[in-house]
Design a protein around this nucleic acid. Sequence first.
DNA 1: TTGAAAGCGGTACCAC
DNA 2: GTGGTACCGCTTTCAA
Lengths: 335, 335
Amino acid sequence: MEKKRVSIRDLAAILGVTPSTISRALNGQGNISEKRREQITKLAKEHGYRPNHIAKSMVANKTFNIGLLLPEFTHNYFNKILAGIESVTYQKGYQLLICTSDELQEKEEKSCLTFLDARVDGILATAGNSSDDLRHFENVLKDGTPLVLLDRICEDLNTSYVVTDDFEGSFEAVQYLIDSGCSNILHIKGPDYISTSFNRKLGYTEALKKNGMEYREEFVLKGDQKAFEKDLNAVLDKHPIDGVFAFSDYYAYDVIQILNHRAVKIPDEISIIGYADEPLAQYISPQLSTVKQPAYEIGKHAAEILFKIIEEKTDEIITKQLKTTLVLRGTTKGT
Amino acid sequence: MEKKRVSIRDLAAILGVTPSTISRALNGQGNISEKRREQITKLAKEHGYRPNHIAKSMVANKTFNIGLLLPEFTHNYFNKILAGIESVTYQKGYQLLICTSDELQEKEEKSCLTFLDARVDGILATAGNSSDDLRHFENVLKDGTPLVLLDRICEDLNTSYVVTDDFEGSFEAVQYLIDSGCSNILHIKGPDYISTSFNRKLGYTEALKKNGMEYREEFVLKGDQKAFEKDLNAVLDKHPIDGVFAFSDYYAYDVIQILNHRAVKIPDEISIIGYADEPLAQYISPQLSTVKQPAYEIGKHAAEILFKIIEEKTDEIITKQLKTTLVLRGTTKGT
DNA sequence: TTGAAAGCGGTACCAC
DNA sequence: GTGGTACCGCTTTCAA
């Protein structure tokens, strides 16, 4: 335990040269005789010398660490984002400092501080539900640490981001429901205060409008809440619902469970489209039609943008909106 | 960009005192007048002073970072392990440096080096498939960095670990199949060279033996390979198979798909038990009976063990084996 | 080509 | 109670 690692000074002492010579030899720069270099490289290897990353960070004022803040990892969506990010950080030789926010404002704030204190070279983050207080992100910006937002957007935050075109994706889904004959379409909306909820609902309402269909307040239910089953049953009792567009595949799954209880035939009586193309979409039967998001690409692009900002030391704000794909499976009819 | 952060020396200059005074005041130790302390605390806050974690790490020779190496995150199992780990690192004030190995020896080795170079205070890792070369882990040990292995065990590595009792879990599952009337039970085995594959297969063979049933080589198929469907169909054609015990829920799912093609009734004609209790187990119908692993607890315990080793600077080897639970759902008959 | 020394941002020991 | 200073491990400028 507590073994001391061999330092550049140790090597210097052995050879009777100075630390600077060792440093130069090992870093391949500065003038140094080929003989010395070989000698030192060999010695370093023999002694298992490994440069102290911490010390390097301190003098370079650069850590080669990126802070990544995600809500959680239970959704496959975020895993794929992580994989996309890693694909670029790995080959760039950067490390990921990962924090999860659990959608909690407090953890979000703490994570930002942690990242700043750790002197990360940049931050990739998904903003949480409560967009009321953005000070922690503003502090990041004020601090001069590059920040790229993922998945969700914060209107009031003047920074780079990568999102998917939720409006377009939703619009397309609802349009499909309409084209395949649905005329009483429910929307199961997502959590308040996150941009994706807003945009997906907007896609729904605009699709209705464009097709001359009436928007009804009572056709929009909030998923993920205790009263959901009761609420849904109430609408189903009252209205001839024939289509459902859900904020997520999980909400869609909940709907299907309830419809199964009511012995509703899917998609003959009611068509359903979810969102995200989580694995469950393929496991349930009938398989769930859904809007697929390019999660891996979101992560990849976000990381690439972050590196562009870091490496070019630019203040430029880069934004990117990726397209979704409507994946038709068993819970929808053909058009 | 490139804003300089305020340092302890800056504050010292403003107040006309020395850096040591500032340090003492901010760290609440050493003798210092209450007045000074208040004055300095106030000044630090005004200037948004934040201690440089890198510098602290350097002098303390401690980073408060833990390296975490996992194969990937697409399996819910690893997410839950991560959540368990985070629950303890978070409250201990440690950060997680995360690398994924994709089960690749090369990435595993590189990650270990990365962790060591980053001077993490400890490492939590899942060993990959190829246990032939363990040098990277041995280097970690030799370096004196505490290492706790997760999920899979390496016989030849003398270090702490947390695993689940795969033998017991498998034995119990196969025993259940036997008790519920199965007499020709297939095992779909996992990847070679990982301890879990070995132990789960052992549970299968031992359960057969204990019940006086013959072990047949041809009743053990390797999942996750091109020829799997062909192989499985071949056995099904030749033998009156009535039970399947799979290395993972995903393998079980593959089996079910093939059985569905053959219009086999589950569980009436063939019972199936998977492993891990991944979400898909609940999504498919009939729902999959499976062996549930306490993933969150594995992570939690592993992290706790690691901290015990770090904090007590002990060389003690701590091992823990957690129990699984047999979760009976729709793919098995009652006993 | 190599050496000497300052400095990155803190901490801690020893004086006063 | 506060100041002075060496040092953590490395890089880099300036001199020799």
